[in-house]
Computed example of a mutant assay.
Amino acid sequence: MNWLLVVAGAVVGAPLRYLTDRAVQSRHDSVFPWGTFLVNACGCLILGLLAGAAASGAASSHLQLLLGTGLCGALTTYSTFSYETLRLTQTGAGLYALGNVVGSVVVGLGAAFLGVSLAEAVWS
């Protein structure tokens, strides 16, 4: 039963990642991977909210599997982030690559902390 929750979340997360990435990238005339940056930041926020809700007892293990493992597992993408950063360096866009690495870590952690804080404010 648990694996079905993961699959159900992934069925939503994977196309959402792809469609969001394409929609965002089509609006930017830049080599910076804004689409991947956005989906990873959103995934961090969702996981932060979920972690805060779980810590407060407001999120069941089933919801954690559905949203955390399934949805966010398919929505976020470390492999694409790594590949895009590598491609930036290979094409001579080293500052964009550095900005992608630093920005992704800072924004991702900030979004996760914000999510936990919001969840604590709502469920504590």
Results as ranks from 00 to 15, higher is better:
28 H>K: 12
29 D>P: 00
12 V>P: 02
37 F>C: 09
24 V>Q: 10
27 R>C: 04
14 A>H: 05
30 S>H: 09
33 P>S: 06
24 V>M: 11
36 T>G: 08
12 V>A: 09
35 G>M: 09
28 H>G: 01
31 V>D: 14
34 W>V: 06
23 A>C: 07
33 P>V: 00
37 F>M: 13
35 G>F: 07
34 W>D: 06
29 D>G: 06
34 W>K: 09
39 V>K: 00
38 L>Q: 09
26 S>T: 13
33 P>R: 02
28 H>C: 09
14 A>K: 06
42 C>F: 12
34 W>T: 02
20 T>S: 11
39 V>Y: 01
35 G>W: 08
31 V>T: 12
39 V>G: 00
32 F>N: 10
34 W>F: 14
25 Q>G: 03
24 V>R: 03
20 T>D: 01
22 R>N: 12
19 L>G: 00
32 F>L: 08
21 D>M: 11
30 S>L: 07
42 C>V: 15
30 S>K: 05
16 L>N: 03
13 G>S: 07
33 P>T: 00
39 V>L: 08
30 S>C: 06
23 A>P: 04
19 L>I: 05
32 F>R: 02
27 R>N: 10
29 D>H: 10
29 D>R: 12
20 T>A: 11
18 Y>P: 00
34 W>N: 09
28 H>E: 11
33 P>A: 03
42 C>K: 03
34 W>L: 11
26 S>N: 14
21 D>W: 07
34 W>E: 05
33 P>D: 03
12 V>R: 05
40 N>D: 10
42 C>A: 15
12 V>N: 06
35 G>H: 10
14 A>P: 03
33 P>L: 03
20 T>V: 14
30 S>V: 04
25 Q>D: 14
23 A>I: 06
41 A>M: 07
25 Q>K: 06
36 T>Q: 06
41 A>N: 07
16 L>W: 03
31 V>Y: 09
30 S>F: 06
29 D>T: 04
19 L>P: 01
35 G>N: 12
18 Y>K: 03
25 Q>S: 13
42 C>P: 05
38 L>H: 11
36 T>H: 05
15 P>C: 02
19 L>T: 05
39 V>E: 01
35 G>E: 12
37 F>P: 00
19 L>Q: 09
